[in-house]
């Protein structure tokens, strides 16, 4: 399991845009992934409140979703986002790390279905939720 987490962390370090946004995988396996993104002044979308831009939250949720697909037991060799539908429920609290928890809950031979929730340090009130569809490459029929 530690090996899996280590290779997942290396994988994340190899994704330049995820690395640029300071993302870290904290948990991964069996079609589920948890990825964090610390608050950073450069990612602010509303200069008045210091709230993180929705686009950065989208990038975090997309990354967590892709990681969840890649660790699904079907063992895909690759994946790409087909569609992502995001609901923004409330602004993330300024200064707090955002955590995205993604679950790949169904796969066919060619498509993976994912749901993902983003929270700040108040884990009971989600900041955003999304559902996504992803391509599945290299899965034996």
């Amino acid at each position: 399991m530690t090996d899996v987490l280590n290779s997942a962390r290396n994988f994340m370090q190899a994704l330049p845009h995820s690395r640029a946004l300071g993302m870290q995988i904290v948990e991964i396996g069996n079609g589920r992934a948890t990825v964090t993104m610390p608050w950073d002044a450069r990612f602010v979308g509303d200069p008045v409140t210091g709230v993180i831009h929705g686009g950065a939250v989208s990038a975090l949720m997309d990354t967590a979703s892709g990681a969840a697909v890649m660790c699904h037991p079907a063992g895909p060799q690759g994946t790409a986002t087909l569609g992502l539908r995001i609901d923004y429920m409330r602004p993330a609290t300024t200064g707090e790390t955002i955590t995205a928890r993604a679950e790949c809950y169904h796969v066919t031979r060619s498509v993976a279905f994912v749901r993902v929730t983003a929270t700040d340090e108040d884990a009971l009130r989600p900041v955003a939720m999304a559902t996504g569809t992803f391509t599945l490459e290299g899965v034996a029929p």
């Binding site: 994704l15 330049p16 845009h17 995820s18 946004l21 831009h53 929705g54 686009g55 950065a56 989208s58 990038a59 975090l60 949720m61 997309d62 990354t63 892709g66 790409a80 986002t81 992502l84 995001i86």
Partner: peptide, 10 residues
């Protein structure tokens, strides 16, 4: 990155 594309669109 799909996230960079999403952010660009938003």
């Amino acid at each position: 990155h799909g996230g960079a594309t999403a952010a660009f669109l938003e």
